[in-house]
């Protein structure tokens, strides 16, 4: 089985978010970049398929050279080879078309992406990608098994879970639950050393659709001070009369 894990390079979850250039750009100053958490769950599941079912695992990121440390980390966790598509991604449609291009050439059985990238929260790359490729698409996956050419997955749905089955090739939108939190790996020294020698191939982008433009950003308005009370009577009255939520 040949697996491709799509990795989005995102600000660490503790990052303070600021904008620059007249609020037209995300300010990367002092921001630590990491593997998108949803992709880390997918990568870790891919490592399980590598160990237990002899899968080959490649990773792909659409980004300029600045994403390479994040990709090296994924290689240190155990992916075999990386593909960097050398373009600054600004839109989910564009990213999906770039990924589709390398996947068409690569003969992958399974493409694991994340439900959502925690930076722009598009939640669209995996679905668009699956459609472009004509692959089956399973979103919000919290469990994944592969036997022969069939994937069986558990999905999170509003208010519960669903078990589904689909033939490979397929694209997965993964999230927390795909592996146990305790299975997440911090790369060790050996992994880091080995990752330096692994292939990280750079391919040039193809012409692709830019369907959206984020022309301006803004931060949420500062929050007013909290109203503290020590009586539940007063709280209930505030919620009823002032906030009007009960």
């Amino acid at each position: 089985m040949k697996i491709l894990v799509c990795i989005s390079n995102v600000p660490d979850t503790t990052s303070k978010i600021n904008f620059t250039d007249g609020d037209t750009k995300f300010d990367t100053n002092g921001v630590q970049f990491v593997i998108n958490p949803n992709d880390e769950f997918g990568l870790t599941r891919a490592m399980w398929f590598k160990e237990k079912q002899g899968a080959t695992v490649h990773i792909a990121t659409v980004g300029d050279a600045s994403v390479e440390p994040t990709m090296r980390k994924a290689l240190a966790i155990g992916a075999d080879e990386g593909i960097r598509i050398n373009a600054v991604p600004t839109d989910g449609f564009f990213v999906a078309e770039q990924l589709a291009n390398v996947i068409n050439d690569g003969g992958y059985d399974l493409v694991i992406a994340g439900r959502e990238s925690i930076d722009y929260n598009g939640g669209m790359v995996p679905g668009i990608l699956a459609s472009l490729l004509g692959y089956n698409f399973i979103n919000t996956c919290i469990g994944l098994e592969v036997e022969g050419d069939t994937a069986t997955a558990t999905r999170e749905i509003d208010g519960g879970k669903e078990k589904v089955e689909a033939a490979l090739p397929a694209v997965i939108g993964g999230q927390k639950g795909l592996v146990e939190e305790s299975d997440l790996k911090i790369p060790n020294m050996r992994g880091i050393m080995m990752a330096r020698k692994k292939a990280l191939n750079v391919v040039e982008p193809v012409d692709a659709t830019k369907a959206t433009v984020d022309s301006k950003f803004e931060k949420p308005a500062p929050k007013g001070a909290v109203k503290l009370t020590d009586s539940v009577d007063e709280l209930v009255s505030l919620l009823h009369n002032e906030a009007k939520v009960i």
Binding site: F93, M124, G127, N139, T140, D158
Partner: peptide
């Protein structure tokens, strides 16, 4: 923004060649 809507919107976007703005 239900889980179902977020599942189908990207598939629809690809079919229609439509830009999709979520959230």
């Amino acid at each position: 923004s239900s889980a179902n809507a977020k599942y189908l919107a990207p598939l629809l976007a690809a079919k229609l060649k439509a830009g999709y703005a979520p959230n």
